[in-house]
């Protein structure tokens, strides 16, 4: 039944010093539909590809607002993500209540990291089967963090997790140096372009399956998190299409106008 004797639980090291249960949990993240995050000096953007179980069912939410200054995008077990997002909402609210301060991003990210780590060291628990991208703004500016089931959290310039996310990461790596000079809208477009890279031949981005979230600072003023879903994404997708066709005409991958 098992691949070997060392993958029954998260409290057993393999002879190589690996913890297979944690590695398998990372696989669950790859089963989830893709989400992309990117950040520059003024904004942090999350975009996600929503899936529906069947034609007539609703789409699974991919981006969850935690507070007005922060949101997460999820890939993997959505119910695990809900546990984590509820915890994050509580912590964020707690910080506003006791200090009157929006919780700093690195704080809340290391808190969920610590929680996830506990699940990998104690018998009877299992690692979370979800990966998160945490985007938000605090006193130190916009941030993007990646959270993994192992409890590893890393601050990223850009990131993509979920099914076929490698294509998006390749796009992000290739365009990484452009993000800092980007406007808010251009950054969103880069996110959508990265997301589009992951689609298989027969799929495309539509108002039904696309989610976009933005948070940032403009001229020193914090801009609350805004989520675009459904018809709100129509305008964004239209711009994407224009840029792509303009790009195709110029026979170039680059779509900066």
């Amino acid at each position: 039944m098992f691949r070997n004797n060392y993958d029954n639980d998260a409290v057993t090291f393999s002879p190589q010093g690996r913890i297979f249960q944690v590695e398998y949990a990372q696989e669950a993240v790859k089963q989830g539909s893709v989400v992309v995050g990117l950040v520059n000096k003024t904004h942090a953007v999350l975009v996600g590809l929503k899936r529906n179980a069947e034609e007539l069912s609703s789409y699974q939410k991919k981006i969850i607002e935690i507070d007005s200054h922060m949101a997460i995008a999820i890939a993997g077990l959505a119910s695990d993500a809900r546990v984590l997002s509820n915890f994050m909402k509580q912590q964020s609210l707690g910080s506003k209540m006791t200090y009157g301060r929006p919780i700093p991003l690195d704080r809340i990210v290391s808190q969920i990291g610590d929680r996830a780590q506990t699940n990998t060291q104690h018998y009877g628990k299992r690692p979370y089967g979800v990966g998160l991208l945490v985007a938000g703004v605090d006193e130190a500016g916009p941030h993007l963090f990646e959270f993994q089931p192992s409890g590893l959290t890393q601050e990223m310039a850009a990131c993509a997790i979920g099914a076929r996310s490698q294509m998006a990461r390749t796009y992000l790596e290739r365009n990484l140096d452009k993000f800092d000079g980007c406007s808010r809208d251009e950054l969103i477009q880069h996110g959508l372009s990265a997301l589009k890279e992951t689609l298989s031949q027969d799929k495309e981005l539509t108002v039904d399956n696309t989610s976009v979230g933005v948070v940032g600072v403009t001229n020193g003023k914090k801009e609350s998190f805004k989520l675009y879903e459904g018809q709100d994404t129509a305008a964004l997708l239209e711009v994407l299409e224009q840029r792509e066709s303009a790009g195709a005409e110029a026979e170039s991958m680059e779509v900066d106008s």
Binding site: N5, Y6, V11, T12, F13, S14, P15, Q16, G17, R18
Partner: peptide, 23 residues
């Protein structure tokens, strides 16, 4: 070597040794 806190007949705790491998 399948469980922590178990001694082998020659007095070793293999799980600890495997943890060293991670290091």
């Amino acid at each position: 070597d399948l469980s922590n806190s178990v001694f082998s007949p020659d007095g070793r705790n293999f799980q600890v040794e495997y943890a060293v491998k991670a290091v």
